[in-house]
């Protein structure tokens, strides 16, 4: 039963991930990407990692992809002209694919007897599973985040803050002499005239 579901959802995830790249229509790609995320969430479920699975759906399928669809629909990407990839892109993509294939092949051939990297001991969660790496309760995640993984957690948060500030700076770029970001009344009138 478990194996069957694993193969089912793996196939679904990989297939839809391929379709994301291969679909000419941007909206189709986005929808397949949602399905792919849900498939990944199902794989997490099979690992008993309910918390991760739900976060996958909540953050990626529920929020990020809505924004993707929003932008695709708003900009009407479909009708924009198709760009043929240039030589540099093709070369870079081929190198990346070769590296990926090599890495996966290496893992397949040697991965069976490889021992997992040993990690530093984690403070014991009161009443949690031992060792904590195997705990699935949401409580254990919180405990780990605020003890052993405190620094990476804070750094990730800081990175997100930097990205947010960057977006605000970019979208509020100074235009000429007037107030930041706000077009003057003259400009608005001109744009209305040119539109009509």
């Amino acid at each position: 039963m478990h194996d069957f579901f694993f193969y089912l959802f793996s196939a679904l995830t990989v297939l839809t991930a391929l379709l994301v790249v291969l679909c000419p229509n941007a909206v189709n790609s986005a929808v397949f990407m949602i399905v792919s995320f849900v498939g990944t969430a199902a794989l997490f479920l099979l690992l008993d990692a309910f918390f991760l699975a739900i976060l996958q759906v909540l953050v990626y399928a529920g929020a990020v992809m809505v924004l993707f669809l929003f932008i695709i629909m708003l900009l009407d990407v479909e009708r924009s002209s198709r760009v043929r990839p240039d030589v540099v892109t093709v070369v870079a993509a081929s190198v990346a694919v070769l590296l990926l294939a090599f890495g996966m092949g290496y893992l397949f051939l040697t991965g069976h007897d490889a021992t997992a990297a040993t990690m530093a001991a984690v403070p014991q969660v009161p009443g949690g599973a031992n060792p904590m790496e195997y705990a699935t309760a949401s409580r254990a995640f919180g405990y780990g985040l605020f003890t052993k993984y405190m620094l990476p957690f804070q750094v990730a948060g800081f990175l997100l803050l930097v990205a947010m500030v960057g977006v605000i700076v970019l979208s509020k770029r100074l235009t000429g002499s007037n107030e930041a970001g706000k077009p003057s009344a003259q400009e608005i009138r001109e744009s209305e005239v040119s539109q009509s």
């Binding site: 929808v31 739900i54 909540l58 529920g62 929020a63």
Partner: peptide
């Protein structure tokens, strides 16, 4: 009786928006 009840509700009901968005499109 899931451990993550409320997150499950938030996650799944956030998928409801696709019905509206895709239908509109």
């Amino acid at each position: 009786d899931l451990d993550i009840g409320i997150l499950f509700i938030l996650a799944i009901s956030s998928l409801g928006v696709y019905g509206v968005v895709l239908g509109a499109w």
